[in-house]
Design a protein around this nucleic acid. Sequence first.
DNA 1: GTCTATACGTAGATAGAC
DNA 2: GTCTATCTACGTATAGAC
Lengths: 205, 205
Amino acid sequence: MAEILAVAVQAMATDGVAGMSLSDVARRVGMRPPSLYEYFPSKLAIYDAVFHDGFETLNSVLRAAIPDFENDPIKALRTVHPIFVRWCIENPVQSQLMFWRPVPGFKPSPAAFAPSIEQVGMVRDLLQAAVRMGQLTEGAVTEEGMGLYSFIGSGLITQQLANDPAGGFPDGQYSRLASASLEMWISHYSPADHADRPPTARSTP
Amino acid sequence: MAEILAVAVQAMATDGVAGMSLSDVARRVGMRPPSLYEYFPSKLAIYDAVFHDGFETLNSVLRAAIPDFENDPIKALRTVHPIFVRWCIENPVQSQLMFWRPVPGFKPSPAAFAPSIEQVGMVRDLLQAAVRMGQLTEGAVTEEGMGLYSFIGSGLITQQLANDPAGGFPDGQYSRLASASLEMWISHYSPADHADRPPTARSTP
DNA sequence: GTCTATACGTAGATAGAC
DNA sequence: GTCTATCTACGTATAGAC
């Protein structure tokens, strides 16, 4: 199963995520197409597995980087964020499935979605710790704070993959702005920046 | 041609952008598939036209909103940004083609890409005006400033279309954060916020 | 578990009549 | 410009032998 998935990802990389065909995957693993059905009940099940394993792998990569900085959450964030961006840029097939909806008819199953929810929890815990230590304002862990954080990540990855797919990390035209965008977000929720004025008072309806 | 394109967009909305088929489009316009080749030389040419017309339409929508505020560029930006986001969320097929790469084998032609470049120019001109009037720091019109601005837009639209496609604007889970994200960006390049300290330092003024 | 054979449908695109 | 007819190819998926 792992080999089939790895080969399927390769196939998606060359023919486009939505362009993967079972015949092609079967040929690449040295099988006939019907044999694949012993391992996955349908083509969409393969997408589901790639989606699920993508988040699982990414989560373990992130988890491995966090524990070292438990007493300095912002330092952990500054360390983990580029690791997150790098993994996504270097695994464009998984990222396209995880961030976009490139395959007609494919929606991740609840089981495949679980690691994605887990990742949101990891981020929230990290930010929550930063708030407790006075490194961030409370706004950082609101829907707004988490939402804006997701924008700088998904926006960067989207732009890099769509408009400069060969750019890679950290030298791509957009990858390059990974820390700059994170610093914008941190500074927006930094206590020092907002100590003496209301957090969101400058918007015009 | 306009009717074919409109119908093709409808077809992409129901079957997925990459799932559009010429037979289906032909049926919907009351033609046989070969007749479509009188208007478009290939299926990819239809994607190219949708991509091109999407940016053209969006540009004219934005242009119509800007001139009223030429003496207050930031006010123009605060007005235009939600209009931009709204159009993208309400035209998800075009947005997916414009922001993502959902169709295997499709890359916009240089001609189709021209209006996209034009849009970047429009934004740069607006921000440049804001800088000249002292409303933004010079960093706003650098590659970094323009890049971060693109992140908050493409990130929001990506998240809204991928994870809450029924949410719409302005009530969607992510759409709702359109002004908050813009204000984060504006405040990051606001002279008052950075007048007396280096860009990434966080001491209290 | 893997295969052959095949069902069953669809696709994009072209030839050529009218 | 639109059609019928067709080409050529490929797709996912199943049946059933071994």
